[in-house]
Write a protein that binds this DNA or RNA. Sequence first.
DNA 1: ACATTTCTGAGGTACGTACCTCATTTTGAT
DNA 2: ATCAAAATGAGGTACGTACCTCAGAAATGT
Lengths: 342, 342
Amino acid sequence: MRPTTKDLAKEAGVSLATVDRVLNGRPGVRNKTVEAVNAAIEKIGFVRNLSAANLAKGKQYRFRFMLPAHGDQFLGELRARIDEANQGLGVEGMVLSHQEVSHSDPHLIAETLSQIGPDKVDGVALMAPESPQVRDAALRLKERGVHVVHLISGKQQAGDFDFVGIDNQSAGATAARLLGRFNCRKEGKVVVIAETMNARDSLERRKGFDMVLTRDYPHLSALPSLETYGDPRRTRDVIANVLRNNADVVGVYIMSSEAKPALDALAAESDPQSLIVVAHELTSRTRDALMSGEADALIAQNPGHLVRSAVRLLRAHCDNRSVVKSQEVIRIEILIKENLSV
Amino acid sequence: MRPTTKDLAKEAGVSLATVDRVLNGRPGVRNKTVEAVNAAIEKIGFVRNLSAANLAKGKQYRFRFMLPAHGDQFLGELRARIDEANQGLGVEGMVLSHQEVSHSDPHLIAETLSQIGPDKVDGVALMAPESPQVRDAALRLKERGVHVVHLISGKQQAGDFDFVGIDNQSAGATAARLLGRFNCRKEGKVVVIAETMNARDSLERRKGFDMVLTRDYPHLSALPSLETYGDPRRTRDVIANVLRNNADVVGVYIMSSEAKPALDALAAESDPQSLIVVAHELTSRTRDALMSGEADALIAQNPGHLVRSAVRLLRAHCDNRSVVKSQEVIRIEILIKENLSV
DNA sequence: ACATTTCTGAGGTACGTACCTCATTTTGAT
DNA sequence: ATCAAAATGAGGTACGTACCTCAGAAATGT
């Protein structure tokens, strides 16, 4: 049997009350006593029984995911995973919610964050573009006693905060490697499609992409990033335009998380079967694209992992615990037709 | 606040004792009453508080991983993950152990399994080659009240049991696709290296591999599988031999989980940089191979996921619960230099 | 040595469920 | 209608921790 607080009290030669004071960081204990208890903890290998602690506390952990208001399929997946996790986690005393904010205006995000307090929520998983306003708002949120982790976006601005998501530069590099290796023709141009290049994430992906492409595949030249602003109409126009002006396009890298508009446009304006197409994230549309040969590979981060990892980190912060960092690394998944599984 | 058994009793119009009888499947309750309670459960959305239940039961879940006695790096990873998980899971009342058995003799495995009983262990995660003896031993184990899941090997024989691992045919297909796409030269031969072709897993991988290669890359022809029997010496001999007899080898598919001997042999007997090499599993050796260009891609299953998934399934069986199947799918990961992360 | 503050101990209740006993009611068969 | 069997209720204890109060001990300053 695992040692209990009683055993700990006996070992440390103090009372249960003192053990409790030490374990829960309550005041009124001499340093010497604290050390004695800690030594006893080490000695007998005491670990708090979380089941009992949760029961006694009767506490609910309330975590909120702040998501962009726009977004389509990938975001839908993410929300679905949040709901799914919410089902399972209710058992463990955690309640997840999500809130949508437009990403168009950093001030609006900051404003929204400023309305959150420890009375409503114990932790926030924040998916937001990098900006000073958001950065400050997150810091103030933390000062108010709400724990914060950054989700998917904002690895750079994360700073003190934990970051849950992939390294975008590596993701871009991965895309370039796949494009380069899959393309057996000698030379040609590569179209890069982004929602906007104002986002740090896009810049990172592009940076990683260019690095590998220029170094290892000099016969391929990547065209300037096309910006779609998430508008299907515009997406189609810019893609039609770039294809018209470049006869020797051999590949396409769709950088944005929402690949649907670009895939649709490609299907309409070209024969994507003859192009090497690499896109991001697994959604119903990208899955279809993979199966039909419209796309050749996907770079994905598993939304379920993202959600569960964010929750584990927030929970650990609330309990002032440490986590196994290696378990919280979100892998950059490469998906092709053959390893789609399920 | 979540409804408790008290609320449930009130809602169902029965006593706490009866609620307890229904919830824990104890006898002596009329069907009508059971239904009434179940209806009330639905109505108020009662869910058992696991923290409290665990506390009250004071039960320890003891799970044992049965692993092959031989095996090197991949198995080491697996063991490390088991230990790691054991750390974290102690908190949740679970204790993991692992036991090594030689895979050379199915009777020995069966014999070992027959010595396990519910007095020692509540569940077994069984990594063993397919064989009638093992199959029977697993069934008897289950009859004795020890839950069983199959791990990595034995998807086909799993039958009633849950299987934790990847689909080997898809894994083989994935390998073939990568080899086919990475190879831009016109034609040539592909070497396939296995530990033994007696194992069902190897056959499955080979099947998936051949399917894709013959259909989509007819200019590549896969040579008969080389068997290494896990012996470094023999590995080197067979590889040297096959390279001597085939000048036009363009790729190598290392099917076995332990890629080290084959990679070492390849490095000694050829210039692996000029070959397309696809191997299985992420270990220190395969990681190095990827970084140095000896290997071009890895097909991997995440050992941490394997362990955690097996534990979740065993736990669910013990509690007679159901699980979110989709969360328990082990992905076939494709790893290249760029997406190795950490 | 005194008063005063700071620590510590003893003991209690609570959380929600599991599991037990014993008395009582209801049911079904005769 | 009677009786045994089956079903149910009432009430208890236990799990390990959190959090509370109050009394008493020890340390501190004067």
